[in-house]
């Protein structure tokens, strides 16, 4: 009996612990404690900065957005009720701010999809050189920077930030199907870029 029951209990406990991670710090932040605010920043700033960098590419933009997002986080924290982990909650604010920033610079996912599909028919490179290139973090990061905005965002949100297509659809105000097709095109495009870089460097 004990052996059967305990895993469920443990699981439940872990789930609770997940949503209430850093609860003490969060509560202090809600009261405006500056040291707790710095602690929360210290815990999440690095991951959030790298997310901003992937989304916006420019370091200055990423830092500005990180700063404004954390100001937003502390301003809105009193509305946070532990339905999710505070990390996921912060990430959602940062992601939304990134999207808004890109939208202000005329990001059009749907349009982009059409344009990409039209301008780039199946790349000839793929057939010529179908072997998978040696993957490295640097190569992937560099290739991601070359991806058009729409592809890069969907790719980042899905593969690196762990959102599913339904959530990405919500965030970007597109359909789940669009998110899926954008993602597979982004992957294909990324492979092409990596292969091209690899090809150039081998030459």
């Amino acid at each position: 009996m004990h052996a059967i029951k305990s895993p469920a209990v443990d699981n439940n406990h872990l789930k609770l612990d997940y949503a209430s991670t850093h609860q003490e710090i969060v509560e202090k932040c809600k009261r405006g404690n500056r040291r707790a605010q710095f602690e929360l920043y210290r815990l999440y700033s690095k991951a959030m900065y790298n997310l901003c960098l992937r989304m916006l590419r420019q370091e200055q933009d990423a830092e500005d957005l990180l700063q404004n997002s954390f100001v937003d986080v502390f301003a809105k924290l009193h509305t946070f009720r532990y339905q999710s982990s505070v990390g996921a909650w912060i990430k959602r604010i940062v992601v939304n701010n990134c999207i808004n920033h890109l939208k202000r610079n005329r990001l059009q996912i749907e349009e982009l999809e059409e344009r990409q599909a039209g301008v780039h028919p199946p790349e000839p490179l793929e057939e010529e050189d179908s072997h998978d290139p040696e993957l490295s973090v640097e190569a992937v990061k560099m290739a991601m920077r070359e991806l058009p905005d729409g592809y890069r965002i969907v790719f980042t949100l899905y593969l690196l930030e762990g959102y599913d297509h339904r959530e990405i659809g919500e965030i970007l105000d597109i359909s789940e199907a669009t998110s899926k097709s954008q993602y597979s095109r982004a992957k294909k495009k990324l492979r092409e870029i990596i292969r091209r870089h690899d090809f150039i460097s081998r030459k």
Partner: peptide, 21 residues
């Protein structure tokens, strides 16, 4: 995955946040 989060923001980002707060 962890290797994709290696970049660090400038320390003055926090001072900017602190000032705004």
């Amino acid at each position: 995955r962890a290797a994709f989060d290696e970049e660090l923001p400038e320390p003055d980002v926090w001072s900017g946040i602190s000032q705004q707060l």
